[in-house]
Design a protein around this nucleic acid. Structure first.
Lengths: 218, 218
DNA sequence: TAGATTGTTAATCGATTAACAATC
DNA sequence: TAGATTGTTAATCGATTAACAATC
């Protein structure tokens, strides 16, 4: 009767893709969806889907599956996507602007309330409703607005300096899109998004497929 | 005397971050770097770094560490980053443009030779040296240029249709930045980049930290 | 009822970590 | 030489998968 570990990273990372399938079923008017169906859609094992979903506390019906509306609520609740996460974004370049325009985040509770940049041409503009301020105003604005997390999309040369500013301004969580391993106090959460690692996996997969010894387990 | 598995995903995903540290040591003029130092920098266990690096075939010197130049070459070779990967990019929006401007990819052997979009205002332009063509020209251009992989940064509503086009044009590998699970033939490699999964991990980490039971193993 | 699916308990698999001899 | 680090072999840990009774 041990409580299952709630910090199973692989499971947490899969939940958003489940959610996608389940929401699509909801749009189709389905009342129930089975783990088997989700697994087929994502090419996973049914038992894995069931185990993952169990973590959210959902209870299904044998033979029928999981109640769609309830399941969506359970995942949202587990991921804390049913509450507002106020975020700021630092670095309003192409990547930053892309993230500001990513409507899915907003649906998942993330509210990007302000962006900051050094570029005078960008300051004063707004993207998808998010105003862009000067970097100099950042600490002040953070204190004023109340912010849960910062999204870091600055050039890597500025990453550590900006992170230092964020920490000093009291930010507790940083979503780091730079390729710099940030040095921050222990109690500050950093989630690093590393595009190169995806490219590395892709390259190796390509090599394995192109070679004769095609032990292509994906 | 079993050969170690070359398809250890976690290891492959860590190699780019090692490379970062090692290249920085190279710029500092260091001839050798130890696994211990790399581990410290990235807050990993030294034994894990050594095991990971061993996969590339590098041989170190006890007491001294690994020869920097040779180590960089070994990682590049293992990841096939020492060869050109000709890529096209489909969807020249903000994210696509950001990827075209990401100079690190170019250094790692990726050459984005062409981009495609539907938007007439974008067609004919070029971003960081990459020309943008109309989507209608895609199949033709792929045949003409010779392409190893496609980067998919279109709106999710178009993802499957574009993937179908790519497959028909003979593309063997797709780097998928949409949140759609693509349906492709078995022999086509898809690497999915899922920003929501990073956000999910961050949200759960925040919940765990803010709660009293701070079992904050990161 | 028959049978597909859930949820639990156990088994397997693979990755991480530990221990330690070899060595520069 | 002394001692830090490598690389190998073994132990541990955690995640995935299998088996199967319960059940709608």
């Amino acid at each position: 009767m041990h409580a299952p570990k709630v910090t199973n990273q692989p499971t947490i990372k899969r939940l958003p893709s489940y959610l996608h399938i389940i929401e699509s079923a909801q749009r189709d008017g389905k009342e129930y969806i089975s783990g088997t169906v989700i697994a087929e859609e994502l090419k996973l094992e049914p038992i894995q889907v069931r185990k993952d979903l169990a973590l959210t506390g959902i209870v299904g019906k044998p033979r029928i599956g999981f109640p769609v509306d309830e399941l969506i609520r359970a995942i949202y609740s587990f991921l804390e996507w049913d509450r507002e996460h106020r975020a700021i974004l630092v670095g309003a370049g192409n990547l930053g602007t892309a993230l500001m325009g990513y409507r899915e985040f907003n649906k998942r509770g993330m509210n990007i309330v302000a962006a900051f940049d050094l570029d005078k041409n960008k300051i004063g503009n707004s993207h998808h409703g998010t105003p862009v301020y000067s970097l100099g105003q950042m600490s002040e604005k953070i204190a004023e607005i109340g912010v849960d997390m910062a999204i870091l999309t600055v050039p890597s040369g500025h990453a550590q300096a900006v992170a230092d500013l964020l920490v000093r301004a009291g930010i507790q969580a940083i979503w780091n899109f730079t390729n710099i391993k940030l040095k921050v106090p222990e109690d500050v959460i950093v989630q690093k998004e590393d595009l190169s690692s995806g490219y590395a996996v892709l390259s190796v997969k390509m090599r394995l497929t192109h070679s004769q010894t095609a032990n292509a387990e994906v």
